[in-house]
Structure formats: structure tokens, C-alpha cells
Amino acid sequence: MKDKNSGMTLIVKTVTRWTVLLIMLYGFYITFFGHLGPGGGFAGGIIVVLSFIHIILAYGKDFVVKKINENIAGILETTGGLLFLTIAILGLFTGIFFKDFLGKGKVFSIFSAGIILPANIAIMIKVGFGMLSAFLCLILFSSQQEENKKKE
């Protein structure tokens, strides 16, 4: 029996290498066009996390934990939250909390609709890396439990 942490077979790994970037790109598309069509920061963030989870399930947890451990994911999550708060406080300088300080722009173009686009990006970072840190903790916990079982 092979070690569980080394991931799945060669076929799965090859397919993963081809598809992960496409999934991540779709998440970014959904986030950046949130004010022109269905989607937004919540859906885009979770799609970006699903691409990370795809890597974790195919290559084993050690491949990802070496690059992003749960501390870095937590720091990025708080960065997203602070970014959203910063947008709100920048509105305070021009008038009220959450005031639209960027202007409306031309309707039906990407750089329009004021604070909706930067707020979508902030929420994508917040939701995405929050879910990633929780998932990493779950996986580390269950693998550690297996090690304890082996020792006993």
C-alpha cells in the first residue's frame, strides 16, 4: 500500500496540471465581471479555493503546505478584510461611510460602477483564503490523528 500523502495516480496529476489554471482563471473572471453579470466576490473566492483544493487532493497535502501553510492563509484573509474596511474609510474622507468616491464611469464597461469592483476583489481575497485556512486545518488535523493511531 502506497503512502497516502503522495497523492493520486499519474493520470490524475497530468489532468490536474492542465485544468487548475483554467479553474482559477474562471474564478477571477467571475469576480472581475461581478457588476456586469451574475457572480461576484463570494462565488469567485470559493472557485479560487476549489482550484487549491483540487491541487491538495491530487498531489497530496505536502505539496501545498510547503508553499502556503495555514499561517500565511490566515494573514492573507485578514488582509482582505482590512482592504474592505479601507475602502469604507476612504469613503469617510469624502463624506459618509461607504460613499462612492470613484464615480460611476461609463455603463457596460469594466471600469465602471465605482467601489463595487475593488470591494469585489477584497471580498474574494477574504472569503477565499478564509475557507482555505479552515480546510488546511481540517486536513492537518485528520492526518495527525492517523499518525497518533499508528503510534499506539
Binding site: G34, H35, L36, G37, P38, G40, F98, D100, K104, G105, V107, F108, S112, A113, G114, I115, I116, A119, N120, I123
Partner: peptide, 14 residues
């Protein structure tokens, strides 16, 4: 008011 086309996104974020 907002310049956004999607009403739901406008309600949530503006």
C-alpha cells in the same frame, strides 16, 4: 445611482 448593471451586486456592495 451606482452605474452597475447587476441589481443584486449593487444592493450588496453599494
Amino acid at each position: 445611482d451606482t452605474g452597475a448593471v447587476d441589481i443584486v451586486a449593487a444592493i450588496i456592495l453599494n
